[in-house]
C-alpha cells in the first residue's frame, strides 16, 4: 500500500527530513507499506491540505495546525504569542492535558498526530531592535499569524500582510520596517542583508508554531498492526530528531545574522511579560470572543509550567 504525504517545504527543510526519516524507516521494515512524499506544494497548496486530509483524500501531511484555524478555532492556540517560552517548554506542553484536548478535536475531523513539534521564530527590523512592545510603535510590520498581527497592532504597529518570500523585497523597497517569521525563513530568505537588528528565539521567545506530522485516522486504523507499530516507532525517532533540529535552527539563525554584521538583541523576562500582558488584551481576548469555550483551553495551556 502506498500512502501519500504532502507538504509545502523544500527537500532541504527539516520538516521534509522528518517526513523522509519515517518514509525510509517504513520502507526498510519491508512490511508492504510505502510513503510517497510530495514536497514543495507539488500536490496541494499549503492551506489546502487539511480538508483532504480529514476526508482521507490525502493520507499524511506536515502542517502548521493553525492553518486550519478557520475551520477549528481552537487550533489558533497553537500559534499564540507568549504561550510557549522555549523548546523545552514546548515539549512539556505537548504532553499536557491542553494538547489532549486539541488532539480530541483533531479526532473529530478523523485526524491524528504522528510527530509533535514546534518551530520558533523571532523579530528583525531595518532600523532598530525589537524586544519590547514599545519598539514596534509606528512601524510597518509583517507578522506570521493573525494572533501576532493582533498583538502587534495593539502595540501600535501597522500591519501589512504578505508571504514570507516577499519580506526581502518589501524591506528593500521600504514597504516594511520590521518582520516576524520563523528562524529558518529569516535565514533562507537572506533577510540579514536588509536588517540592522535581529532578535532570535532564545531564553525567552514569543513566536512558536506547532507544526506536527499528521495522518488520517481511519487510514491509520486500516493498516495492519505490524504496519501501525512500525509507523509509531519511526515517528518516535523522528520526533526526537525534530526537537534537536528545531533548537539547532534557532542557534544557526543567530550565528548567520551575527556573521553578516547584524546586531543581535535578546528578549528579557520583563519584555516577555510585557508582550504577554499585551497579548492578553489583544490576541487572547479576540480568541475568546471568537470561541467562548476557548477560555478553558487557554487556561490549560497557560497552566503548563
Amino acid at each position: 500500500e502506498t500512502l501519500r504525504l504532502s507538504h509545502q517545504w523544500s527537500t532541504q527543510d527539516v520538516r521534509h527530513k522528518v517526513a523522509q526519516m519515517i518514509a525510509d524507516e517504513v520502507k526498510a521494515a519491508d512490511i508492504g507499506l510505502d510513503i510517497r512524499i510530495f514536497p514543495s506544494s507539488s500536490l496541494f497548496k499549503a492551506r489546502e491540505q487539511y480538508t483532504p486530509l480529514s476526508r482521507g483524500q490525502l493520507d499524511m501531511t506536515v502542517l502548521p495546525l493553525s492553518y486550519a484555524g478557520g475551520q477549528r478555532a481552537a487550533y489558533n492556540l497553537t500559534l499564540m504569542p507568549g504561550l510557549v517560552k522555549n523548546h523545552d517548554h514546548a515539549a512539556r506542553l505537548n504532553e499536557s492535558p491542553f494538547m489532549d484536548d486539541i488532539k480530541a478535536i483533531m479526532a473529530e475531523d478523523d485526524v491524528m498526530v504522528l510527530v509533535d513539534g514546534y518551530l520558533a521564530g523571532g523579530f528583525s527590523g531595518t532600523e532598530g531592535c525589537i524586544t519590547a512592545p514599545k519598539d514596534v510603535e509606528g512601524k510597518q510590520m509583517r507578522a506570521a499569524g493573525k494572533a501576532f498581527e493582533q498583538m502587534l497592532a495593539g502595540a501600535g504597529a501597522s500591519i501589512a500582510s504578505m508571504a514570507s518570500s516577499e519580506i526581502y523585497n518589501a524591506m528593500q523597497t521600504g514597504v516594511l520596517d520590521a518582520a516576524n517569521t520563523s528562524s529558518s525563513s529569516f535565514v533562507s530568505y537572506r533577510i540579514y542583508e536588509q536588517v540592522a537588528c535581529y532578535t532570535p528565539p532564545g531564553e525567552y521567545a514569543l513566536w512558536f508554531m506547532y507544526q506536527p506530522l499528521l495522518m488520517n485516522k481511519s487510514t491509520f486504523e486500516g493498516l495492519s498492526e505490524e504496519q501501525q507499530d512500525t509507523l509509531l516507532e519511526a515517528s518516535k525517532k523522528a520526533e526526537a530528531f525534530y526537537l534537536e533540529e528545531a533548537k539547532k535552527e534557532d542557534a544557526d539563525s543567530r550565528e548567520v545574522f551575527a556573521q553578516n554584521g547584524v546586531e543581535i538583541a535578546e528578549m528579557t523576562q520583563e519584555d516577555f511579560d510585557a508582550w504577554r500582558e499585551l497579548a492578553r488584551e489583544t490576541s487572547y481576548a479576540a480568541f475568546v470572543e471568537d470561541l467562548p469555550e476557548g477560555q478553558e483551553l487557554l487556561d490549560k495551556a497557560l497552566a503548563v509550567e
Partner: peptide, 9 residues
Amino acid sequence: GWKSDTVWG
C-alpha cells in the same frame, strides 16, 4: 461555519 484564517476572518 468555516472562516478564513486571518484577522478579518
